[in-house]
């Protein structure tokens, strides 16, 4: 037992609300963005770190995305794929390495500040406001914007027509694929400079997965760089301009999606032949 503020295993819902609380590991806020011209559009360079004081999960891992590209992170289970993405979003304590976005060093700033700097992040789970309508979800995505965001909402509806149909429905009542569309749509509402997707196809059927991939390609075509963590490596590599294979928190292979798809070593070690 550490601290004194744990709940001693209490699960009494008549006094404590178990739903919706923060599960995130707190990262101290503070610091500010520093100009750092040159280099790729978004890069996490030589990132080393883990959660809190725990052991390092990433070891000098580098991930980068250029303008107009789709970059994917693939790798076996437990390779630190999601962790690498969270590190770029500021949800990890980095002991070494830097994160730079559009000519600015953002290593020291909190995830919330990174949203304001132009990062759109779609978490793997709990990525929608389930009790609120689709439209309210999009409005909350645009919370930091004080200007008129109706055109952005129209763009999102154009991209995901089914959401327009269901805009008055609580997002929690939608199907798995539609929820992911809401989640991506919510992140697009800030008009981000780069979109980070953490396993957007987790738990959806193959047909829905193909459709989601199509949408993501469509998003990227509008000029928005996309960085994506994906479990379904083959499909992901097919659409990727650049791909990173991570093994045990370190870069194992890097190249274009097509090149890795045909790399015999990558195929053998983890695409299953």
């Amino acid at each position: 037992m550490t601290g004194g503020y744990d709940d001693r295993g209490n699960r009494d819902v008549s006094i404590a609300n178990p739903a919706g609380g923060s599960a995130a590991h707190p990262v101290p806020a503070g610091g500010r963005a520093q100009p750092a011209p040159g280099g790729p559009f978004l890069i996490g360079e030589a990132m080393t770190g883990g959660y809190g004081r725990g052991a390092d999960i990433l070891h000098a891992c580098t991930i980068a995305v250029e303008r107009g590209e789709i970059a994917v992170i693939v790798g076996p289970n437990g390779a630190g794929k999601s962790t690498a993405m969270k590190a770029m979003f500021g949800m990890l304590d980095l002991r070494a390495g830097t994160v730079r976005l559009d000519g600015e060093d953002i290593t020291a700033i909190s995830p919330q500040a990174r949203v304001r700097e132009g990062m759109g992040f779609v978490p793997q789970t709990q990525n929608i406001f389930a009790s609120m309508t689709v439209e309210e979800n999009l409005e909350m995505g645009a919370f930091v914007r004080r200007d008129d965001f109706r055109d952005t909402m129209a763009q999102v509806y154009d991209l995901f027509p089914v959401l327009k149909e269901k805009r008055r429905q609580p997002a929690g009542e939608l199907s798995g694929g539609q929820r992911q569309q809401v989640a991506v749509g919510r992140a697009l509402m800030t008009r981000p400079k780069v979109l980070l997707l953490d396993e957007p196809t987790a738990g959806v059927s193959p047909i829905v997965m193909d459709e989601l991939f199509d949408r993501i390609v469509e998003v990227a075509r509008t000029g928005l760089p996309v960085l994506m963590v994906e479990q379904n490596a083959r499909q992901a590599l097919e659409i990727a301009d650049k791909a990173y294979v991570l093994v045990q928190g370190a870069n194992a292979h890097t190249g274009t999606g097509r090149a890795l798809l045909h790399d015999p070593q990558v195929r053998r070690s983890f695409l299953g032949g």
């Binding site: 609380g21 923060s22 599960a23 309210e136 909350m140």
Partner: peptide
Amino acid sequence: TRTGKSMRAYSDNEDLALLSGI
């Protein structure tokens, strides 16, 4: 209202509300 909706959003999903800048 924007503030009222942000209250509901925070209640629904604290982490996502933070990510939305609430």
